[in-house]
Design a binder for these strands. Sequence first.
DNA 1: ATTATCTATAGATCTATAGATAATGC
DNA 2: ATTATCTATAGATCTATAGATAATGC
Lengths: 173, 173
Amino acid sequence: MTDRLTPRAREIVAAARELLEESGPSVLTMRTIADRLGIKAPSLYKHFPDKHAVEVELTAQMLEESAEALEAAAGESSGSLDALARAYRTYALAHPHLYCLATERPLPRTALPAGLEDRAALPLLRACGGDRDLARATWAFAHGMVVLEIHGRFPADADLDAAWKRGLKALHP
Amino acid sequence: MTDRLTPRAREIVAAARELLEESGPSVLTMRTIADRLGIKAPSLYKHFPDKHAVEVELTAQMLEESAEALEAAAGESSGSLDALARAYRTYALAHPHLYCLATERPLPRTALPAGLEDRAALPLLRACGGDRDLARATWAFAHGMVVLEIHGRFPADADLDAAWKRGLKALHP
DNA sequence: ATTATCTATAGATCTATAGATAATGC
DNA sequence: ATTATCTATAGATCTATAGATAATGC
């Protein structure tokens, strides 16, 4: 995974990520990426075939980092489902634009590192005792809570901690 | 609600909706909307101040129609939470681009018809016996299932009916 | 030699405004 | 008169390619 890209390509992805996280997807263009590196936009095409390839790398970063966050939560003292949920929510809310970019479009499965999709899903699956249906339902709940919060869909006075607790209590009594 | 817009404005929204549902958000431009009506794009600005105002109307349509679908499900024989969930999923999957447009951005609360947000939330809140936390958790679960399905995030062989059942059983035993 | 960069540019679009013209309604 | 439309256009962008030039590595 660290050798998927040349060093220069990694710098390009890093610049893209800073832009995305700071200012959102609408400012993420080949020109703004190049500007941040002090080069011209056409030079980027020596490192990536097109813009989509850069976005795929951002998606891979999100999946890998959220997998790491979940693995860390699973490995801690408690390792409870509450801890996993907290880790998921914390990661997503710390990187809302990245989370949405990686999540609100089809997974570019063939372009991602082998095994990454499964790795990202594994901690939750384990915590569900291998019950895939329960793991998917819990994932949907967590994803729904996170994206609805990111997009400001809950009423301003909603107690989201309470909603998380209520959902987790039901799914994992 | 039927008098929010002039007849011509309603035709514009209808054309926008057809485009969106047929071809997705990337083709929804002022020019394509105008083309579909046989007029030129600048003429649209006599009916809407800007493109965003058209999108707000599409969002209002989605909220109103999904509210209707949920109200109908609540009023039927069973009126169970399963029926509500089925209605929600069916509506969203029948209108994936509209559902995402209306859902994957902040709610334009001040521009929407008064009471629409509450109305859309009410059937589920009722079915939860007024428990707002449970209603929000259930909404997040349903929204998560739907958007993950729309965006092709579940493995191709995932049994989504089973995941829905499992989640609903937990949330509403 | 190869690689990274640059300049120049093709080829598309987009949103939105200004001002003229035609059609409609009192 | 008012309203809807049109033409013309401003003013921004975007992605991506072609071909030249400079710098690096054998």
